[in-house]
């Protein structure tokens, strides 16, 4: 018998620090598989954010740096400009990328920085214990929207892919989910494409991954997957928003 599925080499063989059912682990694995498949692990520099995935620096078997909250695209820019031959990716959550770091992501995308951004959107703040994120859905209850997110005073959840797609310079922007195997296969393809754009020197690429936070949603992993399918995907449609290789 042949091994048809095993842990990618770019993933350090230690247990994740994430809660049961959290999608971070799947996303880490997909990125690591892409690094393996392109054989770029040794040339890759990753940027871990502030949030649950601050520990991403431990899990990827390549050079890593932890950025300040929201500033990963700026730090990635500094790295890529100094080391244009390396592959640079940032891994960011929704608080990081869509709240405190909105300026950095918009401008890194607009400059067309040749970096890859993996944006994990789980509609809540995980590490700090379940507060409202910029991507928290209308009516969603969190620690800081205890009566549900009220769009009249808290605004509507931000769709980052759509927002960034209004810019001319990004090369590839896509949104994926992981709640079933077919989605996971598509997610892998999107992440691979995003890195391919960087390898080809084509410019800024971003993949938004809709993700669960069973702990702070107060749901079992199964219920969390179902909640994501039912509530998040209708508001955050899956698919490619920008692909500079295709004529629109």
């Amino acid at each position: 018998m042949n091994k048809v599925f095993s842990r990618p080499k770019s993933l350090v063989d230690i247990p994740f620090t994430y809660c049961p059912g959290c999608h971070h682990g799947i996303i880490h694995r997909l990125i690591a598989e892409v690094l393996d498949e392109f054989n770029i692990r040794e040339d890759t520099i990753g940027i871990a954010p502030v949030g649950c995935s601050v520990f991403a620096y431990l899990f990827f078997d390549c050079d890593m740096i932890c950025a300040a909250h929201g500033r990963a695209p700026a730090t990635a820019t500094g790295i890529k400009r100094a080391k244009p031959d390396n592959i640079v990716f940032s891994y960011q959550g929704d608080g990081d990328l869509a709240s405190i770091g909105t300026a950095e992501i918009i401008h890194a995308a607009n400059r067309g920085e040749k970096i890859t951004v993996i944006f994990v959107n789980n509609a809540i703040y995980g590490m700090t214990g379940g507060q409202m994120a910029p991507t928290t859905l209308e009516g969603q209850i969190t620690q800081t929207s205890p009566y549900g997110r009220d769009s009249k005073t808290m605004g509507m959840p931000i769709r980052m892919c759509e927002l960034l797609s209004t810019l001319n310079t990004p090369s590839y922007i896509s949104r994926v989910a992981l709640t079933k195997p077919s989605y996971i296969i598509k997610a892998k393809k999107a992440i691979k494409k995003a890195f391919q754009f960087q390898i080809d020197g084509k410019g800024f690429s971003l993949v938004e991954v809709l993700s669960t936070c069973p702990t702070n949603w107060g749901l079992s992993p199964q219920e969390a997957n179902e909640w994501l399918d039912k509530n998040m995907i209708p508001y955050y449609p899956l698919g490619e928003f920008k692909n500079s290789e295709e004529v629109s």
């Binding site: 042949n2 048809v4 993933l11 059912g21 195997p181």
Partner: peptide
């Protein structure tokens, strides 16, 4: 059947599949 759906879905990369 070795479809590997389980491994693909596992958030902790705790499953290996042989076929």
């Amino acid at each position: 059947t070795g479809c590997a759906f389980c491994a693909m879905t596992c958030p902790d990369v705790a499953i290996e599949v042989y076929k």
